[in-house]
Design a binder for these strands. Structure first.
Lengths: 339, 339
DNA sequence: CTGTTAGCGCCTTCAA
DNA sequence: TTGAAGGCGCTAACAG
């Protein structure tokens, strides 16, 4: 691959001149400029960013560590990050951590070796192990946290997340306003942070309505379709089944819809279902799912803006934003049947 | 950040010794080794991969250009790539091209500047513009093509894709075997390659069964839920509606399911629906969707293995693999109603 | 307006 | 078993 030196020779100028025409970093006479440009084009010269980075100590690439890029919400977040980064000439390195601290550490080390300018860390349920925490808090790399604090990482780290509590609250209040009183909650794993927060919102809404939460109407399980399916089946088999159900995420809600149908329970006539996320398919579920949409792309954008600020060294107060979800009422929720 | 030189000074040895203990590239006396290691640990030294790359001309990072990482199939593919790359110590740079040649070129230039070792290119429907084609065929970077040839790129470029034709064939034959004769096809855009291939498989199956394709039973539209919904609605409003429907992908199939329900058409009693992809939610659709699962993760794996071979310079015959989908029969397909 | 020079951090001959 | 030195490709003083 052609180097700057070769370009310089061919154009009969010094490398610094070539460098300056490329970077427009000092005046160059028009004819020399044209000549250099011509040679660059002719030789198909493309500058070596590594060599440049070695000097300025800036790679214009940021790392993104997510639990799993196939989760729809992560994918949207990732997209928000990439879009924002691209707009200002940054590239992103993607790492799937799969909630495995070993793997996360290996990834992060690799990213640091490659001298990423910053890191967007989307932690999963798992907590950081010591090694990861040490790497993160060594101050080697500016970090912003997405959606969840990470145990072991400085609590003052910049943060942008979703307001999961509000999501649970909005969904539940919607059901309450429709007149429901026996409202179940299908939650994910007990250690999954976002699920716990959504559950808290569910409880707050009930409390505000003067309802005591019925422990029999709360089911934990895996935070996917299968988990939602199993949980709903159990709830529908209850002697006094709920008239409505809030699933902490859309995948579980979709699973619940499936279980209801298989149990011969009409939605929304006999059971209202509300999810949370607003996946693309939610609008086309049977029936179309009422849910709380989450601004994942926007979260990615804000995280990236924030990170770029830190990279530039702009002093800004520590951020701790919580983005609000938005209730989207469709056809899976309705007033309870009269008895 | 600590440099090798600083480590060397602190340990009272030369940088070359430090380099050699790090890379185990020549014998070092045990006590010196221990001392160096201790200093590295104490200083938290992490080698600078850029400086290293400047020498070896290898970055151990590969670029991945996809149309959109939020599409479920892309996300799985991406995951397959990342998994495989990580296993051998490579990182990946993710680029969303959004079918925009301008953007793709900008991304690719950036990747080349950063001297990626290779590129996995997932082209969308759009064709490469001249500039992109030129960059790709300049031989600067080993490239493997995912799922679709790219106009303007050397036809001999390594390739791993899905056998979309077989997918359409499998889905349609399944419906034929159930006894259907009026089988509609909900296809995506007319210029979308995978959709076209699946459509071809549909036609082949019909032809084998001695059926002439009814042009009125083929509907093109956008390749998403909305497109599937609209297409199905039109088909169901026909004077002689089909008894079965093959949607070229699951999103469209889900949309079709939604439309059927809204039109009061029972699935599978009055209409069988088969999709293609086997998204996670397909198994929990109402009713659970019969579809053709695609080995997207495996495709990512094979693409990456192939690319790594090329990067290593191993001479291998050009690959042109087509991975087979697998029919997954669930509850959205059944024998047609007797009249 | 242009060229010379000294590194950035690391690897790798070549010598000792 | 170890060190010295040159150079990967580029940028940025410093001179002219």
């Amino acid at each position: 691959m052609a180097t700057m030196k070769q370009v310089a020779e061919r154009a009969g100028v010094s490398t610094s001149t070539v460098s300056h025409v490329i970077n427009k970093t000092r005046a160059v006479s028009e004819d020399v400029r044209q000549r250099v440009l011509a040679v660059i084009d002719e030789m198909g010269y493309i500058p070596n960013a590594m060599a440049r980075s070695l000097k300025n100590d800036k790679t214009r690439t940021i790392g993104v560590s997510v639990p799993d890029n196939t989760h729809a919400a992560m994918a949207e977040l990732l997209r928000g990050i990439e879009d924002t980064a691209f707009a200002v000439g940054y590239n992103i390195m993607l790492c799937n951590g799969y909630e495995d601290p070993q793997r996360q550490v290996a990834h992060l080390r690799s990213l640091i070796e490659k001298r990423i300018d910053g890191l967007v860390l989307v932690a999963g349920a798992a907590r950081a192990n010591e090694e990861l925490a040490a790497l993160l808090s060594s101050g080697r790399v500016p970090v912003v946290l997405a959606d969840h604090a990470v145990a072991g990482v400085d609590a003052a780290t910049d943060f942008v997340g979703l307001d999961h509590e509000a999501t649970g609250y909005l969904a539940t209040r919607h059901l309450l306003e429709l007149g429901h009183r026996r409202i179940a909650c299908v939650a994910g794993g007990e250690h999954e942070p976002s699920g716990q927060e959504r559950l808290a919102g569910y409880r707050r809404a009930l409390a505000e309505a003067g309802l005591a939460p019925d422990p029999g109407l709360l089911v934990h399980g895996s935070a996917d379709c299968q988990g939602g399916h199993d949980a709903a089946r159990r709830l529908l088999a209850l002697e006094q089944p709920p008239s409505a159900l809030f699933a902490c995420n859309d995948l579980m809600a979709l699973g619940a819809l499936c279980a209801a149908r298989e149990a011969g329970v009409e939605v929304p006539a006999a059971l209202s279902v509300v999810g949370g996320d607003d996946l693309g398919v939610a609008a086309f579920a049977t029936p179309r799912l009422t849910t709380v949409a989450q601004p994942n792309h926007e979260m990615g954008r804000q995280l990236t803006e924030l990170l770029l600020q830190r990279i530039r060294g702009e002093p800004a107060p520590r951020s701790h934003a919580r983005l609000q979800g938005r209730l989207v009422v469709r056809h899976s929720s309705a007033a309870p049947q009269a008895h």
